[in-house]
Amino acid sequence: MTPSPDRRRFGDSKKDRIDALAQTAGSTAGGAQGGTVMTVADAGRVSGGEGQSLIASAWKRLRRNPVFLTGAAITFVFIVLAIIGPWIAPYDPVAQPLLSQVRRQTNPVPGPQPGFPLGGDDVGRDLLSRLLVGGRQTLIVGVLATLGGLFGGLTLGTLAGAIGGWVDSLVMRIVDVMLSIPGLILAVSIAAIAASPSQTTVIIAIAVVQIPIFARLLRGSMLAQRASDHVLAARALGVKPHAIVFRHMLPNSLGPVIVQATLVLATAIIEAAGLSFLGLGNPDDRQPEWGQMLGQAQNYVSDYPHLAIYPALCIIVVALGFTLMGESLREALDPKSRR
């Protein structure tokens, strides 16, 4: 998550518990440590042991949150599938074992049969194999598009939020213009500019659409941070400006952005499917991708809806997984829910 030095404490909860126990034992023994004095010191007690960072305490709450666990489980299965998909797929996704059954007029899509539980597609390829293998490309599109959007958004948002003044106005006007164009239309126009549509153009188109969302979000929380007391305190302390931005403002602004990233991952996959559906996806179907499969199913959707339903279901479940994770993260990172 955040590049924080505290990550190593994730596994230290057991130690914490032991420390806490030791501490309670100490306090019931009265002023054992302090000789005859029964009363606490002026400042009160400070328990021993390692401290628990905000991220660690958020993680502690998340671990027991069923919503988060569901989302994480779905995401985990999806990632595993993306890695091992090609090995568990019964057929090569480009092989056409059912080609002999395809009849342009009478039977364009071979149905389910022994060895092919989901049947084949319109050129006789095994649908199950293509779904299993397609997870990887879908993940790549989703992750790269999100990372691209995140990178662009972080750069613009940090610029606007940290420098302020006319830079802020300029960046924000650009962002406003981008936001005023509906996302899909913007993606369509970017994808259409490219000489020939490909995986890369899809990723770029979706990434660009996400940039203003991240930029606005980050700029907003950076501004809130800039007005916060702890940034004022750092200024009063004489901390160097770049250290204030990168040590105090940025890490404290990232929470909502990370949450948004998990949600954007879901929408990126859906938007990729949308572009494919509109014929702006990757035409090279040797590497299957769910969105692309969904797009190609449109010719047969009235007679053979299962061609669309299977990839659509996969997308919906995966998107749900990321969304559940994102929503529970938002809840856990919300300072108001901390006690």
């Binding site: 955040t2 702890h230 004022l232 004489g238």
Partner: peptide
């Protein structure tokens, strides 16, 4: 020059960066 003049704030929670030890 800030080294010479320091400040103590009203709200000790909000004036300490929650992510720093």
């Amino acid at each position: 020059k800030r080294q010479d003049i320091q400040m103590v704030f009203q709200d000790p929670m909000s004036s300490l960066d929650p992510r720093q030890s």
